[in-house]
């Protein structure tokens, strides 16, 4: 179980971005998170994935805190893949950052073998996002946070990536947090959804 307990965050000398926020995600559960811009959705996911340390409260997996070194079992996929990969690494190296993905996974995501020797700028946004997804779908990942993962993609590529990710998280017992502005998408893929307008994140 991934648990965020009484999470609060602010940058020094600034207002609270997130305050008194509780969340629990079970393995193989798919949870949606939505709310207007500026409600701290991305800050929350960065707290849960260990990119930011909460000012108050704590994040635990099965009662132990997130590791402070090595591979984090909570991984994020961002909206813009070109900002999430090293522009000077070839795709092959990017994919193998944790461990090389198996051929079956690459096939399922329609990642063409000819892409492996290219650089990130030589792929389109949809192609690169599939690479970013393949990189985090490995046995060390226990929870996945998809922050507007397919907002930049056409409908067909969006459905293709979601089917693949949902199959994978179901078969590997991974908990998934889905952040999106698209109500139809949340309704389609999630078991339950959290509306930040109702629960509130601050003040």
């Amino acid at each position: 179980m991934l648990i965020g307990k009484q999470l609060a965050f602010r940058y020094p000398h600034h207002n609270w971005i997130v305050r008194n926020f509780d969340i629990a995600i079970a393995p193989s559960e798919v949870v949606g998170l939505f709310g207007p811009s500026g409600f701290g959705k991305t800050t929350l996911s960065k707290l849960l994935a260990g990119y930011l340390t909460p000012t108050q409260g704590q994040v635990t997996i099965d009662n132990s805190p997130l590791p402070d070194r090595g591979y984090c079992p909570v991984q994020m996929v961002f909206q813009n893949p070109e900002l999430a990969v090293n522009p000077r690494w070839r795709i092959r190296k990017i994919l193998a950052e944790k461990q090389p993905p198996d051929r079956f996974l690459l096939n399922a995501l329609s990642i063409h073998p000819s892409w492996l020797d290219r650089y990130p700028h030589e792929l389109s946004g949809g192609e690169l996002q599939r690479v970013a997804v393949a990189r985090v779908l490995n046995p060390a990942t226990r929870y996945l946070i998809a922050d507007e993962m397919t907002a930049m993609l056409d409908a067909n590529t969006q459905a293709l990536i979601w089917h693949m990710v949902l199959d994978y998280v179901r078969s590997h017992n991974i908990g998934l947090l889905v952040i999106s502005h698209d109500a139809a998408l949340i309704k389609r893929v999630c078991n339950r959804a959290i509306n930040l307008m109702q629960v509130g994140t601050s003040r």
Binding site: A155, N156, A159, L185, R188, V189
Partner: peptide, 11 residues
């Protein structure tokens, strides 16, 4: 392939 329709993509 839209989520509000069938959400079925072509590969």
């Amino acid at each position: 392939s839209l989520p509000q329709n069938e959400f079925i993509p072509i590969s």
